[in-house]
């Protein structure tokens, strides 16, 4: 995935079944952000793979004051990349069988 300066990782091991996964997001390279970033640490949240969109979560982070509006896109993309990888892994495990 492209280096966006924002790192997103699983906060707990993915069991491959739950729609809601726990993710952890933090800024690795503040220089890649356009707006002012509130240096608060890692943000942990749950993400529903079926009902939610990465951009929606990014917007909520902006509204909560973690990121500037101009960085919603880069945060959303970072979450989207990680979510795509998790979905890909799940599909691969399903097709590989037990």
């Amino acid at each position: 995935a492209e280096d966006t300066g924002v790192r997103v990782e699983l906060a707990e091991e993915d069991d491959g079944k739950k729609a809601a996964i726990a993710l952890k997001l933090w800024v690795e390279d503040p220089k890649k952000l356009k707006g002012k970033y509130k240096e608060s640490g890692a943000i942990e949240f749950t993400f529903d793979l079926e009902k939610e969109t990465p951009e929606g979560v990014a917007q909520e982070m902006v509204e909560s004051g973690f990121f500037h509006e101009s960085d919603a896109k880069i945060v959303g993309k970072s979450i989207r990349d990680r979510v795509a990888l998790i979905k890909w892994r799940r599909e691969r495990n399903v097709s590989a069988g037990p």
């Binding site: 690795e28 608060s40 640490g41 890692a42 943000i43 949240f45 979560v57 909520e60």
Partner: peptide, 26 residues
């Protein structure tokens, strides 16, 4: 220590310190 932020949509964000080992060297 972790802090919690609950958005108007009901989402909960838990903020915790990033382990130094996981930060890129500046």
């Amino acid at each position: 220590s972790a802090a919690q932020v609950v958005t108007s949509a009901g989402r909960r964000f838990i903020v915790s310190p990033v382990p130094e080992s996981r930060l890129k060297e500046q």
